[in-house]
């Protein structure tokens, strides 16, 4: 099979079977690297680091990078659209079904359990970023980061209307100026 089509097919497959967010795509990329040798595991590690340090969903960033690496801009667009295609189809079907079942007693009961569970899941998923933002690799506390966190929490609490984008930009500037 033509490599370009095979590549897009692999990303459609990843989009269809990677359940639970961007990081769930990593095992599939790993498999592609072993099966087809499209990229090395070193490159995969770099890709993860870059995806985490650039804006956007991590899975999308990785798809774009692999596609660009293989076939330039055409590849980047192909892999990214391939990855999101199954989501669009599946979610559209579910959204349509939810419209019909939103008044169902059973669905409401299920969501009574799901809503608090999602908060637990979000907290668990954020622990990684909490720890890496406030601790060094040897688990000692990054004092300057803790001070910045207290400052940001104070600003956020005092000016409730402050936009998250402003807070993110401010923290990036402070990071560069004070060499965090």
């Amino acid at each position: 099979m033509n490599t370009f089509i095979l590549l897009i097919f692999e990303f459609i497959k990843t989009g269809l079977f990677a359940v639970g967010g961007g990081l769930a795509t990593i095992p599939f990329l790993n498999e592609m690297s072993i099966k087809y040798g499209w990229f090395t595991s070193d490159m995969l590690t770099t890709m993860i680091a870059v995806s985490e340090s650039t804006p956007g969903a991590i899975g999308i960033n990785m798809a774009t990078y692999v596609g660009y690496h293989m076939f330039g801009i055409k590849g980047a667009i192909g892999t990214t659209l391939g990855l999101v295609f199954p989501s669009i189809v599946v979610i559209t079907i579910i959204a349509n079904m939810m419209e019909k079942f939103q008044d169902s007693k059973l669905v409401k009961d299920i969501f009574n359990g799901l809503k608090p569970a999602v908060i637990g899941l979000i907290l668990a998923a954020c622990m990684g970023i909490f720890i890496s933002s406030l601790f060094n690799k040897d688990y000692s506390l990054k004092v300057s980061s803790v001070i910045l966190l207290i400052l940001l929490l104070f600003i956020q609490n005092k000016y409730k209307k402050i936009h998250p984008i402003f807070l993110i930009s401010l923290a990036a500037i402070i990071g560069v100026v004070f060499k965090l």
């Binding site: 870059v50 970023i129 990036a172 500037i173 560069v176």
Partner: peptide
């Protein structure tokens, strides 16, 4: 890219902001 010192510093700050926003 991810080894650039300036990117690393900016990212350290951004991570703290993300922590703050997520806690709230």
């Amino acid at each position: 890219f991810s080894e650039l010192i300036i990117v690393q510093h900016a990212l350290s700050g951004i991570k703290v902001a993300v922590t703050c926003l997520m806690l709230v």
